[in-house]
Amino acid sequence: MLIDIILLLGGAVLVGVFGILIALFLMGVDRIVTARMQARIGPPLSQPLTDIRKLFTKENVVPANAIPLLFNLAPVIALASAITILLYIPVGGFPPVLSGGGDLILVMYLLTLPALALVAGGFSSGSPYATVGAQREMVTMIAYEFPLAVVIIAIAWKLAVSGIPLPFMLASVQANPVWGLVGPLGIIGVLILFFVLLIVTPAELSRIPFDTPEAETELAGGVLVEYSGKNLALFTLTQGVKTVVMASLVVALFIPYRLSAIILAPVILQPVLDLLFYLVLVVLVAFIAVSLIRVSMARFRINQVVSVYWMYISLIGIAGMLLIMADHILGVV
């Protein structure tokens, strides 16, 4: 019993450190790749680490009209909840640390926590820019939640009707790649859902074109405008860890393959192989969902964010779900 708890704690710390390291790595890759696509050289890969280290040495300014408790608590909650999600998602080719305790529904709820902490921090910082930014963050959250739910439910439903027990468990999703369960029509449906999840990712991460809550040019950083020093460092790390979370979620739902299952390798090398394969996949997903979309679009207005998600992306997601359902019904008949 005690050993279990120690193992669990050790795993949690390990995943936390690992998550932050991958987060810094992804942020560095994103900055370099974006720079290259914009005909710039870009910073070295270690730049995010340097930035965070610098932020930790800076003064932590709390505005006079802020609510200090909430203002200082929000970044801690945000980072903690982001790392908590990592405990439920398979990271680095290993099964999730808390594999027995939670499922996709919990992950969906946990995903809103960092955003809610951001909103609370924004409202408590007492700046008009942060207030507008926090309102926009809430609206964005409401907007992308529905397509995200559609994707998760469609996949879990497919697993359920295929007779797999506990369809919402990430371990079952991981063990049974959805591509193998569907027919040709369903593959189109899964592809559509894959696309929808990739489009939801930039909004979840407040990146262009859905970075309206931070909107540098009109809100000067929006929700984060009053944050500095340690608190800003924590929020920046949260953004990075959320990138890892979303990329891992995409990988877990749609590319749950292991290299060790395909290539024969010595047992000791297998985890290394899996880890490398996972890193490649995560970088690839982050590249498409974050960097590529970011360099090729302008920022949306908040009403356009809502209409894009509620109208187009939701409809596309539902179409994908219907295709999977039709595929299943046809297959059964």
């Binding site: 696509m37 914009q38 005909a39 710039r40 262009i208 074109p209 970075d211 909107a215 540098e216 040019t217 360099v295 090729s296 679009m297 302008a298 920022r299």
Partner: peptide, 11 residues
């Protein structure tokens, strides 16, 4: 840049 389209700014 004001539109949030930084790639175009650089180009």
């Amino acid at each position: 840049h004001e539109l949030g389209f930084d790639s175009l700014l650089f180009l």
